[in-house]
Design a protein around this nucleic acid. Structure first.
Lengths: 121, 121, 121, 121
DNA sequence: GTGGTCTAGACCACC
DNA sequence: GTGGTCTAGACCACA
């Protein structure tokens, strides 16, 4: 996996796990990869994975069973939705609207970008 | 001026100068405040201002004359637009579209958010 | 290491690192000394080393990994060659030819200087 | 006149005057432009011209008559030749030979560069 | 006056 | 451990 050097790696891993849960790759109450496994898979220090998992644990998205591993919390999916929705409305949207004004981009332009991205992916 | 504690001050100053140019408060080829002046005005160290100015100089947004000061580059305005546009298309947009899919938000929803923000401001 | 008092120390460090790469003392993708290490070794402030490294990073000669260190960029060697070649052709050469005319020195004279220097070294 | 922002302007003016003397545009014992005149002509601060003239005076290349102006010294021409020759041999040449080795440029290559420049000028 | 370099030292986030 | 930000203050060359 390639990481953006401008954002903390552990936060990018948090994102990665969140998306895996949102897309149901990790189901509710299912065990997620161990710290070691993921560290090897992503070619990252174990401490970095641990920090990401602790972060997710603090947000009640995953929980750990001692000696066994980390599991997707029952309320994990909903928690992620809440967090993502809040961030979207409080940061992503205002930020985007501000830039649209500065760059003179209209909602119509947005629509065509949207279609372009959909076609290419 | 109050600074966001989560972002480097010098980058916030970079933003500040860019917006001053975008809004024509600093005109093309006009002299911008000296390092010392701005340091006093913003209550930060001179080195912090200098770092911001050097950053802007690297992006060809401002240039310096020895012993005189910093000036808005002829192509400064366009450079800022290029930078902002690139960031918008490469990061803001894909990020937003991805979140829209995950959060199940449609373009129609976006439109109504847009109108809400416009009314309230 | 002794520094020439007429040139900024950080630029002399830039030169030093470049030559270490050119002479293969630092190999491609190899880690170079940490900011602190080099600061101690050269007896200068950490900020001075950092400034040199940032300069080299801007020229795509080295790159950094968060929390790990600086590494020689894949294209580092070529970049240095490009920079040095450009400087040679745009500055050193025209400067020399101009002086040769003013001082009435011919290409033949140059050849003998060249041989003198080679013999003495 | 356009100045290289990387070198002190007053030194570039020193160069300019030296070349004017070498090419006999300013003859021995002839009066050179007044500080004010040259300042206007080159669009530079008078202090800058003054600094250049004082520098040239220190090297016995020009001398001043109070209330009248600056004049090319009797030994001015020879002085310039000495200075330029010394600099050429001590700095320009070794610097160039060093770069030639690093860049893998031979004396033959130099010859062709030389002819190119002669043709284009 | 202007920008620029450098230091010593503190403090931070990240790996 | 790593890089990075920031400060206070000194000192310099240049216009």
């Amino acid at each position: 996996m390639k990481f953006d050097q401008n954002k903390p790696i552990y936060l990018q891993i948090v994102e990665f796990v969140m998306e895996s849960i949102l897309t149901k790759q990790y189901q509710t109450e299912e065990r997620i990869p161990s710290v070691r496994e993921l560290a090897v898979a992503l070619e990252v220090n174990q401490n970095t994975i641990l920090k990401a998992y602790e972060h997710l644990e603090n947000e009640s998205i995953i929980y750990k069973k001692r000696g066994i591993g980390y599991f997707v919390d029952q309320q994990g999916y909903d928690q992620i939705m809440n967090i993502k929705r809040a961030e979207f409305i409080q940061h992503t949207l205002p930020d985007m609207f501000k830039n649209m004004q500065l760059l003179n981009i209209s909602l119509e332009d947005l629509k065509s970008y949207f279609q372009q991205l959909n076609n290419s992916s």
